[in-house]
Amino acid sequence: MKPFTIHSGIVAPMDRANVDTDMIIPKQFLKSIKRSGFGPNLFDELRYLDEGQPDADNSGRPLNPEFVLNQARYQGASVLLARENFGCGSSREHAPWALEDFGFRAIIAPSYADIFFNNSFKNGLLPIVLDEKTVDTLFKEVESQEGYSLSIDLENQVINTPSGQSIAFEVDAFRKHCLLNGLDDIGLTLQDAEAIRQYEGQRRQSSPWLFDQVK
């Protein structure tokens, strides 16, 4: 996983509540057995005017000029500004994979669906929660100023705006540690292998039916 320390980038506004993971990456692209290559199909049904197919060349497809990521001023965006309950619906990790593959490193929204929120951290994508009023202000600033960028400092948990304002944000200590160092948490959990074995042994005693072998 790519470590996340300080990131500065152009902000793209996704002004819509309850953006679901079917919207982020439609089901036909979930047939891949790889973790990469989902970026060209991020928001496929909003981004293109025709129906996308897996393993197809997307370069000649008609783009929806209305869609935010197709507008010239948001090219190269790496911070997504969103509304409440972002990432609801399916548990597909393909959603953060697609966002990350497209080039996003952080999302800012008033709230996220739980599974999406969790999945993002595992993929070097930082989902930041800010209150609705602050998010509203950011939407106004992004829309009024072309090339609007934010600088996100994870270590100090602060977002710096172009006007010099600093916005503090909260992040879980363990997730922050993993993200800052690009750590794989399986390795960390396996440091507790002895505790797991001990628990398992006790459980085998107290609830033996959970270890019955099915013939």
């Binding site: 973790r35 548990s91 597909r92 990790e93 953060p96 599974i115 969790n118 999945n119 595992k122 993929n123 879980d172 363990f174 948490d185 399986i186 959990t189 396996l190 507790d192 292998a193 797991i196 398992e200």
Partner: peptide
Amino acid sequence: HGIGTSEVEHVLATQCLIQR
């Protein structure tokens, strides 16, 4: 509950999940 693919791998490898 549902989990993402990284967590599927985590459970396969450790039989555990890190939860709050």
